[in-house]
Nucleic acid binder design. Structure first.
Length: 260
DNA sequence: AGAGGGATCTTCT
DNA sequence: GAAGATCCCTCTC
């Protein structure tokens, strides 16, 4: 079962996409994506693949340390195609954490731990590991090296599909109110972003983000080191000396992060 | 603005 | 049997 399925009305037709920043090349109706996505595999190339030109490929993940990947993901755009209506949600990644595998006491793969549940962390770079936490929420990681290292996505800044995100978040709400969330609070946490973008262990776990029609990354902005703040990670105090290492990264002055 | 607690269930010991 | 990479409501200052 999902986290509390409230009697929420389905969202109305979403409004026109808001072109929130320079990462957006052109306007496009969401229905266009549906059509092209459906036929994008195994079909003639006459029509260009649904994959956008600026989609990040496996190259983006290669030859990067886990820490470098966590930083490089800042500013990139997380895209999620919903089924069955095919609407695409987009949001800029603004906060990440690096988990350094076998040596990292805060990592699920500490000491080389390997179970069926943790298998995605040992799969090809860019594999999504989506797991449930606290019995009711999900968190999403991307495998960084196929050897247990991973990057946790902690916060995103919504770009496209804000209405749908509001609706998805409202479904998980405990109270009956239908007041929209303030935009900065829509996806400013690891589980909030999963709720807002309909990411859970049944639909996205083990999917590779460089090779999926459900979820992918697009080139956003490059964030220079000067604009990246490093802090200790959140919620892992039990990990002793590893709890204080500066392995959390966020975009300086960004309003959409989970915690200052 | 910050502290405290409840909801809820998978995973491994 | 216990812990957990959370969120959100409520209470207090």
């Amino acid at each position: 079962m999902k986290p509390t399925a409230r009697n929420k009305p389905k969202s109305k037709t979403s409004t026109v996409k808001t072109v929130a920043n320079s990462g957006v090349k052109r306007k496009r109706k969401s229905t266009e994506i549906v059509v092209s996505d459906v036929h994008s595999r195994g079909h003639i190339k006459a029509k260009r693949s649904a994959k956008p030109m600026n989609r990040l490929s496996a190259d983006f993940f290669n030859n990067k340390s886990c820490v470098d990947l966590a930083k490089a993901l800042l500013g990139q755009i997380l895209c999620r195609r919903l089924s069955p209506n095919g609407q695409t949600l987009k949001a800029t990644i603004v906060e990440t954490e690096a988990y350094l595998g076998a040596e990292d006491k805060a990592s699920a793969t500490y000491n080389g731990r390997r179970t069926e549940h943790l298998e995605p962390l040992y799969m090809t770079r860019g594999t999504c590991f989506v797991y449930m936490t606290y019995g009711m929420y999900h968190c999403m990681n991307l495998s960084a090296d196929g050897n247990g290292n991973a990057v946790l996505l902690r916060a995103v800044q919504p770009i496209d599909g804000l209405d749908q995100m509001q609706s998805l978040r409202a479904k998980c709400r405990k109270t009956g109110t239908d007041t929209p969330y303030k935009q900065t609070l829509l996806a400013n946490g690891p589980s909030k972003l999963c709720m807002a973008m309909d990411i859970d262990r049944h639909n996205i776990n083990k999917v590779n983000i460089t090779d999926s029609e459900l979820i992918w990354l697009e080139t956003g902005s490059t964030v220079s080191d000067d604009d990246i703040v490093c802090t200790k990670r959140i919620g892992i105090d039990r990990a002793k000396e590893w709890a204080n290492k500066p392995l959390r990264f966020y975009i300086k002055d960004n309003e959409y992060i989970s915690k200052k």
